[in-house]
């Protein structure tokens, strides 16, 4: 049999672990911003301070349950990355029960949908959960302090994470550090991340008349770093990745500015992921 007997030791398990290590600082910052600071100011109870960890634990437990039903193993695909990324982008004051039910339903859906359909599963799950949440109460990404507007923050505070965003997806500075960490480890589609970020930044600056605050005050940058380069639903060839990233960045800018500030990026990622097979076909012979 014609087989290669040597392997460079890279495996899905290693890729997933390296990816999760990158998420750790974001989770800890989320705990600081939406847990410790709020508890200090008596805006949440001691138990609620740990919300971000509850979300992660619920996600992992639900993954184990669905894996059991669908006879899948945890390190044989990228689903652990999915369930650990989704909580980061949840609204800080999310209802845990609604989250658990909607995540469970979305995990079942992605398991039963035919493999042939190409879509970004992380963006799909996030959108699904946000839509369900929106059915119960209007979607808001403000935490208890932001609702009261009690802090006087400067630009540096905002860029360091005090801006409005998901429970652990507001720190753009950390996000950029994580981007470089991922870019240096093997299996991250950095071309998509960099090209989409570039296109997004340019389009946002143009649309918003060079107002940097608009650029940083959404989930977009972190989503373009963590969700857009999703390995499965994106093209794999260099040229197609550049085109994919540029289109995604532009679409994200437009949807964030004109359709929905908080969820525009997820819609853009989902739409772009549907187009991957066409893009792959078009660039096949390049």
């Amino acid at each position: 049999m014609n087989r290669v007997y040597l392997h460079n030791n890279e495996s899905i398990k290693k890729i997933v672990i390296k990816y999760l290590i990158g998420l750790l600082p974001l989770v800890l910052y989320g705990f600081y911003k939406n847990g410790i600071l709020l508890y200090r100011d008596d805006l949440v109870s001691f138990v609620d301070m740990f919300n971000v960890f509850y979300l992660l634990i619920i996600s992992i437990l639900l993954l184990l349950i669905t894996n059991f039903f669908f006879k899948k193993k945890i390190f044989e695909n990228m689903s652990l990355v999915l369930v650990c990324t989704v909580p980061l982008f949840m609204p800080p004051s999310i209802n845990l029960l609604v989250y658990a039910i909607s995540l469970f339903l979305s995990l079942i859906i992605i398991n039963v949908l035919p493999k042939k359909i190409n879509y970004n599963k992380i963006a799909f799950v996030i959108l699904f959960i946000l839509i369900i949440i929106n059915m119960f109460e209007p979607l808001s990404y403000l935490n208890s302090a932001e609702k009261l507007n009690i802090y006087a923050l400067n630009f540096f505070d905002l860029i360091c994470g005090r801006t409005i965003g998901g429970i652990a997806s507001s720190n753009i500075l950390l996000g950029i550090i994580v981007l470089f960490y991922y870019a240096f480890f093997n299996n991250y589609k950095k071309v998509i991340a960099f090209s989409s970020l570039l296109a997004f930044v340019i389009i946002m600056i143009l649309i918003n008349n060079f107002d940097i605050n608009e650029l940083i005050a959404s989930n977009a940058i972190l989503a373009l770093i963590l969700i857009a380069p999703d390995t499965i639903s994106t093209p794999a060839k260099f040229q197609s990745m550049v085109i994919y990233g540029l289109i995604l960045g532009i679409l994200t800018g437009l949807l964030t500015s004109f359709i929905s500030f908080n969820i525009g990026v997820f819609i853009a990622i989902l739409i772009c992921s549907f187009t991957t097979p066409i893009l792959v076909k078009l660039t096949e012979k390049w």
Binding site: N77, M78, T231, I232, T234, A236, F238, E284
Partner: peptide, 29 residues
């Protein structure tokens, strides 16, 4: 004897990136 558990392609593109002949092992061109 080593047994590697083969799993579904995650479309990471490493095989394309490494190919010294600039081929795409995922398609037939």
């Amino acid at each position: 004897k080593k047994t590697f558990k083969v799993v579904d392609c995650i479309n990471c593109g490493k095989c394309i990136e490494i190919c010294p002949k600039n081929l795409n092992p995922l398609n037939k061109h």
